[in-house]
Computed example of a mutant assay.
Amino acid sequence: MNDMEIIDSSFSAVINAPIDRIDIPEWCFSLPEKDYQACSPAHIAAGFTTAPDGRRMSINVEVIGGSLMVQHYVETLAKKDHLILESASDIFTPTGRTTLHIKWELSVRAIDGQRCEFTNHVVSTATDEFRSFLDRQGIPFDVFRAQRAPMSIAHNKGETPLFAASIERAALRK
């Protein structure tokens, strides 16, 4: 863990579909809002657009640990079996607005001809703006990290099997 890292969380779940039927970027950038909401009680809204450089962007809105987050996930790697998205996410707290950097990595690997293992990996790191935000309030970063990490990890653990089920449904519709 580096001195700016808040969490590094990874969970896996089985997808009962062959790997050649799975296309994670297609799933991610066409996921209906109701399906996104069904993957966690913390999920509020999802939409899609493009970044200024033309790369696809997924906009996700959720509440974790009482803070509203608006994530602007831009694809940095897009393969059928592996998607990496990075976001300068806006965080709205009772004491103001700030940002975090989040790297969201989704991948699948074949278990056998009919099943895959899906992995949902999230790494969040503090921006300089966020560190200043905590400093202005007199909150030590380690104290914030200790309080935030369990909530973020629980969120990832809860959404992973539901994302896997959604990807499975999309794969089996093909």
Rank of each mutant, 00 (worst) to 15 (best):
I15F: 03
F48N: 09
G96E: 07
S89G: 14
N60K: 12
M1P: 15
K80Q: 07
R55L: 02
H155V: 05
D23G: 12
S9D: 09
R136I: 14
N156Y: 02
R148C: 14
P94D: 06
L134R: 05
R148L: 14
T99S: 11
F118Y: 06
S89L: 11
D142I: 12
T125V: 10
A45M: 09
T98G: 01
M69L: 15
I44K: 03
A78K: 07
G158F: 12
H155P: 02
Q37S: 11
V74R: 07
E129I: 04
D135Y: 00
P25T: 05
Y36G: 07
H43A: 01
V63I: 12
R145Y: 00
E117Y: 05
F133N: 01
L100M: 09
S166E: 00
T160C: 01
S9M: 07
G66S: 00
R173E: 13
Q114T: 15
C116K: 00
L77P: 07
I91K: 01
R21A: 09
D135S: 13
L31S: 07
Q37V: 06
L106Y: 10
R115Q: 08
R55A: 10
F163D: 02
S9H: 06
S9K: 07
R56Y: 11
D20V: 05
A13E: 03
S10H: 07
A126Q: 04
T50K: 03
E26K: 15
K80M: 03
D20R: 03
A170C: 11
G138E: 05
F48C: 09
